[in-house]
């Protein structure tokens, strides 16, 4: 499991690679929260397109970050292409509150639109 960061203006793109379970959740959580301390980061895109597995521990990570970001008036989006992960996002009603896109470019575009 690995996490990579990149930036587009005030948007932090967090690409999670591998498997997201309870074991890896703590590491991911710390890494993202560390990046978010930087004042230039306001919005977050969770790029899950290289994530091969996620269980309910991932829901906790995503919802936890969402609450923090919302408190600071930031926006969040998810990029996902995996059917198993999609079912979990659906089940936890995450898709009702955080937009999910199939392509990173679309997610970036949508966030920049809504921020402006």
């Amino acid at each position: 499991m690995q996490i990579k960061f990149s930036n587009r203006g005030t948007t932090l793109i967090a690409s999670i690679i591998g498997e997201l379970d309870h074991h890896s959740a703590e590491y991911i959580r710390q890494k993202i929260d560390n990046e978010m301390i930087k004042s230039t980061n306001k919005n977050v895109i969770f790029d899950l397109s290289k994530l091969s597995f996620m269980d309910s521990s991932g829901i906790g990570v995503i919802m936890g970050r969402y609450k923090n970001i919302q408190r600071l008036n930031g926006k969040m989006a998810i990029v996902n292409t995996n059917a198993q992960i999609d079912r979990i996002l659906e089940m936890a009603s995450i898709k009702k509150i955080i937009p999910v896109y199939e392509k990173l470019d679309t997610a970036i575009g949508a966030l920049q639109q809504s921020v402006r």
């Binding site: 959580r29 309910s56 906790g60 919802m63 979990i88 089940m91 936890a92």
Partner: peptide
């Protein structure tokens, strides 16, 4: 408190 979602 542990960021569990209760969805397991």
């Amino acid at each position: 408190d542990m960021e569990r979602s209760g969805m397991g």
